[in-house]
Simulated assay, not measured.
Amino acid sequence: MPRYFDHAATTPLKPSAVQAITEHSGLANPSSLHGSGRRARLAADSSRARLAAAAGADPSEVIITSGGTEADNLAVKGLYWQRRHEDGRRRRILLPALEHHAVLEAAEWLEAHEEAELVIIPVDAEGVVDLAALEAMLAEAPESIALLTAMWANNEMGAVQPIGRIGQLCAAAGVPFHTDAVQTFGSIPVSFAESGASTMAISGHKIGAPVGIGALLVRRDVKLMPVQHGGGQERDIRSGTLDVPGLAAFAAVAEEAVASLEAESSRLAGLRNRLLEAVEQEEGVRLRGPDPRTHPQKRLPNNLHFTVDGAEGDSLLFMLDMAGFDTATGSACTAGVPRPSHVLLAMGLSEEEARGAQRLTLGWTTAEEDVEALRQALPGIIRQARTAGMAAG
């Protein structure tokens, strides 16, 4: 069996998720009025309340979706359309260039089809938002801003954004604020109520629930224009029959993740730092994103991202794959696309530097022996990849 170091893409199902799916798989449509439907509704309501508690939200704020991508699209498009409907001057969308493609491409679609104007918030060399620049942007014609979106933590190199401060600045300017917390929820403490965000996206398969279940948390005073229409479920924001087994599994693993958060984060950070020790000894290998040894609060505990001078990220990935290790060059959502990471380019790297990227992400299945095996293999594989050289060289 390969040793799995790609938990940021998806993490294996947890036993608690399998148990919840099995227990709830025979339930009826929760919108039905008969007894079986009412029992399904009761199970859905209970799971929603548990998920809300884990995320620091009220149950009425939890809008169930098919995952993070749908949640991000619903937030970005729904907020934009609602704000334009209320005031036609609101065309500007403020966002960092390192947003996940689910946010970035939704905003670009609005730019191409709905007269949106994208305003890029600068980030520093570690991928953290420049708060001074952001504050100045919010002060410039705030009446023309439709929304601001900034992911809580980056999916590629794990930089954690100052979400609380961003929320305060947006509230002062009267601007709705969406945050993609897909990588963050279950990894570090997350509270929707304390974040200051108007909307927040989370996803089940990043924490051990099945693929196909997620949520958009929507503050009760926030209005969204629906992206899809139908039966009027989920506060009329997202029509569609609820996936009760998936929701029950999501709630179960969310509770589990929050309960063990401190201990598991500490365990994963320790294992991650051992991998960092192994790669930093190699010449031309550079950590990307905040250094977890000096600023642990600025980086997700399970994330290690580095670039290798003179090597292709794909070469590293395939050599590691052949040696029995599952890793990534960046976001799985753009796997197979032969272009440098937009995240690294936004951080100021050249295309050549960005091409040597490798991401290692740990999770609940990661054991010490997995890390030790990778520690032993990495130096040799890095040297082999360098020998192979750059494909365009």
Score class of each variant (00 low, 15 high):
Thr307Trp: 09
Ile382Asn: 06
Gly389Leu: 04
Val160Phe: 01
Leu27Tyr: 13
Asp309Phe: 09
Leu74Gly: 06
Leu118Ile: 15
Met137Ser: 00
Ala388Gly: 04
Ile188Cys: 10
Asp221Val: 15
Gly348Lys: 06
Gly310Met: 09
Pro15Met: 10
Met1Tyr: 08
Ile120Asn: 01
Ser265Met: 08
Ala197Gln: 10
Ala251Phe: 07
Gly56Ser: 03
Ala139His: 14
Gly167Cys: 10
Arg165Gln: 11
Val285Glu: 02
Leu217Glu: 01
Thr179Arg: 12
Ser60Thr: 12
Leu378Phe: 01
Cys170Gln: 10
Glu111Trp: 02
Asp58Gly: 01
Ile145Trp: 00
Leu360Tyr: 10
Lys206His: 06
Leu300Asp: 06
Glu353Pro: 06
Glu283Trp: 13
Val18Lys: 12
Ser341Ala: 11
Gly246Asp: 11
Met319Cys: 13
Ala332Lys: 14
Tyr80Glu: 02
Ala323Asn: 03
Ala269His: 01
Ala146Trp: 06
Arg274His: 06
Leu349Trp: 08
Ser203His: 04
Lys77Arg: 13
Ala150Thr: 08
Ala112Leu: 10
Met390Pro: 03
Thr11Ile: 01
Gly158Thr: 03
Ala28Lys: 05
Gly336Asp: 14
Gly231Val: 07
Gly67Cys: 00
Lys14Gly: 00
Gln161Tyr: 11
Gly68Ile: 02
Ala259Gln: 00
Arg220Met: 14
Asn73Glu: 12
Val119His: 12
Ala132Gln: 07
Ser265Lys: 07
Val337Tyr: 05
Ile213Tyr: 02
Pro338Leu: 13
Gln161Gly: 09
Gly284Leu: 00
Ala44Met: 15
Arg286Ser: 03
Leu374Ser: 09
Met157Gln: 04
Ile93Arg: 05
Glu369Asp: 07
Ala373Lys: 04
Glu264Phe: 11
Asp243Leu: 05
Lys206Ala: 07
Ala269Trp: 00
Ala52Trp: 04
Ala173Asn: 12
Asn73Pro: 02
Ala257Lys: 00
Ser36Arg: 15
Gly284Cys: 04
Lys206Val: 05
Gly289Pro: 00
Leu247Ser: 08
Asp180Val: 13
Gly127Trp: 03
Leu134Cys: 02
Leu79Asn: 15
Ser260Arg: 05
Gln376His: 09
Asp124Lys: 14
Gly212Glu: 05
Gly68Leu: 06
Val308Gly: 11
Ala367Asp: 11
Ala116Pro: 08
Phe306Asn: 12
Asp314Phe: 03
Ile237Ala: 13
His85Gly: 13
Ile64Tyr: 02
Pro338Ser: 13
Pro59Phe: 03
Trp152Phe: 13
Val103Ser: 00
His178Asn: 09
His101Pro: 05
Glu283Ile: 11
Ala181Tyr: 11
Arg165Ser: 11
Glu256Tyr: 06
Trp364Gly: 07
Pro301Gly: 10
Phe306Gln: 12
Arg235Gly: 11
Thr199Met: 09
Glu70Cys: 05
Met157Cys: 08
Gly35Phe: 12
Met319Glu: 15
Ser191His: 08
Asn29Ile: 01
Leu247Cys: 09
Leu42Met: 02
Ala52Cys: 00
Gln358Leu: 15
Ala172Gly: 15
Arg274Tyr: 02
Ala132Phe: 05
